[in-house]
Design a protein around this nucleic acid. Structure first.
Lengths: 354, 354
DNA sequence: TTGAAAGCGCTAACAA
DNA sequence: TTGTTAGCGCTTTCAA
C-alpha cells in the first residue's frame, strides 16, 4: 500500500483544482459532466478513497452515530459449548438495539459505530467513540457519570434503558421501557384473570434499575389486589441466566410453607431455566405452577409451554434513539431534554395458563 | 453546545503547550504527573473531548475496523408482526458476524463501524466506511467489484463468505465456510447411517455461491453412494424463508413419483418451514421423512423435532476477520493473500432420525 | 520533560 | 463552473 493518493493527486492527474475534486464527491451536480468524468476516471486510476477523517475535520461532522454498551459477556470462557442457548439469547438484548439503530441510521444516511466500553480513563473507548461521531447512544450504566457529563456537553447523547442516572445527567435525552407498567399488567393478569394469589418474584442484579422497576410494578399489582407482598423480591439471582433461574425455581420449591401458584421472573432467561427445573421435578406448567418472564426474547416463544412474558421493544428503542439524535443534530439543537417511555406489551402464552 | 474546546484551549487553560496536551492523552507517562493533572483538570473543566477526526488525520490511523453487509431485510413492511420468528432468525446471520467482530475488535482495542451498503456511486456507504477505518470486512456480493478493487488497493479488506469473486479481487484476504464439506458429510450421514436413498435438495437464490457449494457437496455424496442426482437442486426457493420452505415441502410432496425419504434444505429457515408443512399434512418427521437444514440458527435447536443441520461458525468468522485485519495492519503488511476455510460441523438431531 | 512548527487531507467561503 | 486560500484539531519530529 503505497502512500494513499489525495485530492491533490487526483486534481493534478485530471488537470483541475482540488476544490473541483472535492465537489465531485460532495456535490456532483455543481461540476460539469465532462469535468466530473475526468476526475472520477483519475480517481479510479489512482485508487483514490476520500479520507473520512480529513473530511470530518474540515466539515465538522462525520455522518456516523455511535452506540456504547457495557462489556458484559466475556468472562473467562469464550466458548461454553454447553451453554449455547443461553449465549444466543444473551446476545439479543444489545444486538436488537444495534439492529434497530443500524436500520434507522441507514434510513437517515448515517453509519453506526459500536463499542463495548472497557474501563474509563482518558483513553476509554467511549471517548474514542465520542470523538468520531456526531452523536451517540449509551446503554445505562455503561459509562462513568462524570465522563458522560463532559462528553454530553459537546454532542448529543441519548441514554437507553434505566432511569436518568443522576442530576448531573438530567440534560440528556433518554429512552426507557415501561418496566413497571408491564410487570404490573402481567401480575394483574395472573391475579385477576387466572385467580392466582400465591406469587413469588425472582429479581436479579440488585442495582439494576430495570429490575427494580419491574419489581415495583409487581408489588403495586399485589397491593392493589390485597395480596401481601414484601419490600424486596423473594429471591435475587446474581446473574439472570438460565442456570440461575433453575436454581431459583428449586429454591422456591424447597422453601416450604404454602405452595406457590406462580413464579414471576425478572427476565426470560431465568424463566426458561425455571421451566426446565420444574419439568425435572414433575411440576406441571401451567397446571401446578404459572411461570412468567420479561423481555420477549425469541426463545420465550419457542419453549414448551411458550412463555408468558412482557415484550420489550428493544429494536424500536434503537430506532427511537437514532431518530432523537438526528433530530438533535438538525432542528432541535438546544431544546428541552426529551424523555421517552416506550410501551411494552404483555404476551399471554401457555406458561400462565392462557 | 458552544464551539468545542480544542487542544489550544486546554493548553492555554493549563499553561502548557498543545504538544503536552496531546501527550497527556497519547502517552501519559511522558508527562510529569503534576503537569498531567493540571491538563486533565483543565480538560474536564472545559469539557474537552479529543477529535477523533483530527487525531486520525494526523496519525493516519483510526483505531476502527469496519463491516459492510448487504442491505437485505428492509422490503416495505417494517414490522411484520406475523412473521417475528422469521425476522429474529434472519437477523442472526450478519449479527453473529457483527458480534464476533465486535468482540475480537474489542480485544485488540478497536471499535467497529458497521454499515449496510446501499447503492454504489461516489458517495456510497462503503466509501464512507472505507474512509473512516483502518481496514474492513465485506460480506460477499455487498459491494460492486470495481469499487472494492479500488478501495482494497488502499487498505486491508477481507471478504467474508462466498468464494473469491473475480480475478480482480484475488489479492483480498478471504474467509469462507466449508459449505460443500458440510453438506456432503450431512448427506453421507443420511445415506450411510440412516440408509435413506430417495432424497431431494431444495436450494435458494440461484446465484448464491454458498448455496451452490452446498448443493455441490450434496451431489458429491449422492454420486459417491451411487444415488442418481440431477445437476441442479430439485427446487429453487427464491427467498429462503420459512414460508418458502413450507411451499417447497408441499411441492415436493405433491410431485408424485416414488415417495421421498428425506428433504435437504439449503438453510435452516426453509427447513423449519418444511417442518410446519409436513406436520400440517400428517407426515411424521423423522419416521416418514427426514428433514435437514444448514446454518445452525438457534431456532433449529428449538423446533420439534430438533433440526439436524450444519452449524456455521459465523461468530468465529467475524473474529477471524478481525484477526486477519489486525495482522495485516501489523506485521503481515504485504504478504500473500490469505484464504481461510472454516470447518463446519454436522449437528445430528431429531429430524434425521438420530 | 516540554515547546515550536509543520503538516495530515479535506471543505468552504470568496473570487474569478 | 472553477480556482485560491484558509483553516479544521491533532500528532510528530526536532530543539531546547
Amino acid at each position: 500500500m503505497s502512500s494513499a493518493p489525495t485530492v491533490y493527486d487526483v486534481a493534478e492527474q485530471s488537470g483541475v483544482s482540488i476544490a473541483t475534486v472535492s465537489r465531485v464527491y460532495r456535490n456532483p451536480d455543481s461540476v460539469r459532466q465532462q469535468t466530473r468524468d475526468r476526475v472520477l476516471a483519475a480517481a479510479r486510476e489512482l485508487g483514490y478513497v476520500p479520507s473520512g477523517n480529513a473530511r470530518g475535520l474540515a466539515s465538522r461532522s462525520t455522518g456516523v452515530l455511535g452506540l456504547c454498551f457495557p462489556d458484559y459477556a466475556d468472562p473467562a470462557t469464550e466458548a461454553e459449548a454447553g451453554d449455547e442457548a443461553d449465549d444466543d439469547a444473551a446476545m439479543l438484548y444489545s444486538d436488537q438495539i444495534i439492529r434497530g439503530m443500524e436500520r434507522a441510521a441507514r434510513r437517515h444516511g448515517y453509519a453506526l459505530l459500536i463499542a463495548a466500553s472497557l474501563k474509563g480513563g482518558p483513553e476509554s473507548l467511549v471517548a474514542k467513540v465520542a470523538g468520531r461521531v456526531d452523536g451517540f447512544a449509551v446503554l445505562a450504566r455503561t459509562v462513568p457519570t462524570e465522563e458522560l457529563e463532559v462528553i454530553s456537553r459537546r454532542l448529543p447523547v441519548v441514554m437507553l434503558a434505566g432511569p436518568r442516572e443522576s442530576d448531573q445527567l438530567d440534560h440528556l435525552d433518554h429512552i426507557e421501557v415501561a418496566n413497571a407498567d408491564g410487570q404490573r399488567e402481567l401480575t394483574r393478569h395472573l391475579v385477576e384473570d387466572h385467580g392466582l394469589r400465591r406469587l413469588a418474584f425472582v429479581g436479579g442484579e440488585e442495582y439494576s434499575p430495570d429490575v427494580r422497576a419491574r419489581f415495583a410494578g409487581y408489588r403495586e399489582a399485589c397491593l392493589a389486589a390485597g395480596i401481601p407482598v414484601r419490600e424486596e423480591p423473594d429471591l435475587q439471582a446474581p446473574l439472570m441466566t438460565q442456570a440461575e433461574g433453575s436454581r431459583a425455581a428449586d429454591a422456591l420449591l424447597d422453601r416450604g410453607g404454602e405452595p406457590l401458584e406462580a413464579m414471576l421472573f425478572a427476565n426470560d432467561q431465568m424463566a426458561v431455566g425455571a421451566l426446565h427445573a420444574l419439568e425435572r421435578r414433575g411440576v406441571r406448567v401451567p397446571e401446578d405452577m404459572a411461570v412468567t418472564g420479561f423481555d420477549g426474547i425469541p426463545l420465550s416463544r419457542l419453549v414448551r409451554p411458550a412463555l408468558t412474558t412482557v415484550r420489550q421493544p428493544m429494536r424500536r428503542m434503537g430506532e427511537e434513539a437514532v431518530d432523537l439524535l438526528v433530530q438533535r443534530l438538525g432542528a432541535g439543537r438546544g431544546g428541552e431534554p426529551v424523555s421517552l417511555m416506550l410501551p411494552v406489551n404483555v404476551a399471554r402464552r401457555g406458561s400462565c395458563g392462557c
